[in-house]
């Protein structure tokens, strides 16, 4: 079990950050983290309060006990 955006989450075996993000935004992502639809992706991920660069999403498997935050731009300021 781990925490994603403040809620408990049970990852699938071998699930990576790339898999998690793609599922949350409902878009297919290339291995380098770019959207397959050619658009831009305004999302960032931190694990245990450290940013995981997009280029490392595919290589980063989710692990029990982690705190994962997926953020995007919202209205503000």
């Amino acid at each position: 079990m781990l925490t994603v955006n403040g809620e408990d989450y049970q990852p699938h075996p071998g699930e990576t950050v790339l898999d998690l993000v793609a599922g949350r935004i409902g878009r297919t992502l290339e291995p380098d983290g770019r959207p397959a639809d050619g658009g831009r992706l305004g999302v960032a991920v931190a694990i245990d309060r450290a940013v995981v660069p997009r280029s490392r999403w595919q290589a980063t498997e989710l692990a029990p006990g982690q705190t994962v935050d997926i953020v995007t731009a919202v209205q503000g300021g």
Partner: peptide, 21 residues
């Protein structure tokens, strides 16, 4: 234009970023 950074809400996606772009 300013934006704030907040947790992604289920089903909402990253709509503001492409809109402002």
């Amino acid at each position: 234009a300013t934006v704030a950074m907040r947790r992604l809400k289920p089903g909402e996606g990253d709509r503001l970023f492409p809109l402002l772009s």
